[in-house]
Structure formats: C-alpha cells, structure tokens
C-alpha cells in the first residue's frame, strides 16, 4: 500500500505567494485587458440580444423540440412500439397503444405525451425509434407556457410541429 503514496509538496509557502498581492494583480490585469478591449470594439463581443435577435447557428443536428412524423398519406408514422419510452432516461414519454384500423400495420398510439419539463433533450428517443416516427429537428429551442400542463405535449401538438430542415415525411419503409 505504502509504495502507492506519492507525496506532493504544498505550494504557496514562498514569501511572494504569502503576500497575495502579485496574484491579485495578475488576475485584475486580465480583467481590465478584456474590459478595455471590449469597450474599444463592442461589436466583437460574442453575445446575442435575445429575443430581438434570434440565433443563426441552429443546424440540422440541433436537438430541438420533438415532433411526430407523418407517412406519405399524412397518417401518423408511430406504431406505439414503446422503444422511445424504453430508451428514455428521464422516463418522460407516456404512450397508450391501441389497434390501428387504417390499413397500416396494426398498432398506433392512442395517446402520446412528452413531458418537456422532465425531458433532458438527450435524443435517445430519436435514436431508438425503428420507424423514424419521432425526431427533434424542429429547430424549436424555446417553449413557453403559463402552467405545468402546457409543457406536457400531446399527440396532436407533436404531429403539428414542423421539421425545420425539410424531410417532412418519415423515411421508414412504410
């Protein structure tokens, strides 16, 4: 056991260190350097005047608000296989399945809720989906509401969300 112990000498015991002032001076120097640089050229400051100014760097890989995709005939692509709910680490997807009567497959979600207040936007649901039925490509990064219930999105809301980067229709085999 003893040969695994490595003794590290304690730093800060010299006279210069004990004075503290040289270290404070070093720090304040950095602060003032940035202050004067930014006062000279305020346009170079990397901030966004949100909400008047909207972000421009949202790419197709950005994990925004979820949506449920449609099939070519505008019916829901989801078959309620519960893969997303199984993969979800936040346990925030609530599905109730029912039999499907419109000729596609046999199963569809009767209700499909995502509690976005519990969601951690990890994207595992998108990864897990075998039908390309759930995506996070809406580009929506801000969701507002007046009460907690507003943040629990139902099937209709999720189906109404549009993809921001084309590919409106699900690309699974049916």
């Amino acid at each position: 056991m003893s040969q695994n112990i490595k003794v590290i000498p304690r730093h800060g015991s010299s006279f210069k260190d004990k004075l503290y002032l040289p270290a404070i001076y070093d720090g304040v120097k950095v602060t003032f350097k940035h202050l004067f640089k930014n006062l000279n050229d305020s346009n170079a400051v990397d901030t966004l005047e949100y909400p008047e100014e909207q972000p421009t760097d949202i790419t197709s890989r950005y994990r925004g608000l979820h949506r449920l995709t449609h099939r070519p005939d505008a019916s829901i692509a989801c078959v309620a296989c519960f893969m997303c709910a199984t993969a979800c680490p936040a346990d925030c997807i609530f599905i109730e399945a029912t039999a499907r009567k419109d000729g596609h497959d046999e199963k569809m979600p009767k209700t499909f809720f995502i509690d976005t207040l519990e969601c951690v936007f990890c994207g595992y649901c998108v990864e897990a989906c075998p039908c390309d039925a759930i995506r996070m490509d809406t580009g929506i990064f801000s969701l507002t509401g007046n009460n907690r219930e507003d943040f629990v999105l139902g099937k209709e809301q999720l189906l109404a969300n549009k993809g921001a980067f084309g590919e409106e229709i699900c690309s699974a085999r049916n």
């Binding site: 078959v79 309620a80 296989c81 893969m83 497959d105 046999e106 075998p130 039908c131």
Partner: peptide, 9 residues
C-alpha cells in the same frame, strides 16, 4: 419482423 407491433416482443 414486425417486432415493433408484436405483443410477443
């Protein structure tokens, strides 16, 4: 191979 809609899965 319709495991997503199959109850036996």
């Amino acid at each position: 191979v319709d495991c997503p809609v199959c109850d036996q899965a």
